[in-house]
Nucleic acid binder design. Sequence first.
DNA 1: AGCCTGACTCGGA
DNA 2: CTCCGAGCCAGGC
Length: 106
Amino acid sequence: MSPTKPSNNYQRIYATVRRVPEGKVATYGQIAVLADLPGHARQVGYALNALNDDTVPWHRIINAQGRVSQRSEPGWDGYQRSRLEAEGIVFSDRGVIDLKRFRWQG
DNA sequence: AGCCTGACTCGGA
DNA sequence: CTCCGAGCCAGGC
């Protein structure tokens, strides 16, 4: 068995993100843990950034504060929020999601 | 090979 | 509530 396989981690992250059901959200750290990569929350965000696949619901991934992370390119944060609201996710005035309510329990 | 950056998170001030 | 520093890994130059 190979001890470590970098590219394999990305596939595991994508597979985990695909498990997130509609109307629910997950944090980067949560995805990392579910993908069997605890502590690699950054890699999750990085993997999604490099992602170019519509089959992965990357818009359901937010930070641990329940807020949509600001992307490199402006405008996409608004797109992500719109997608989530379309699925029933509710944002507060500050743009914060109630994780207790919408967090996906893997 | 080395250095810098980035969709993160946590604890402390 | 906000701000700062440290730890983490992958990719580009």
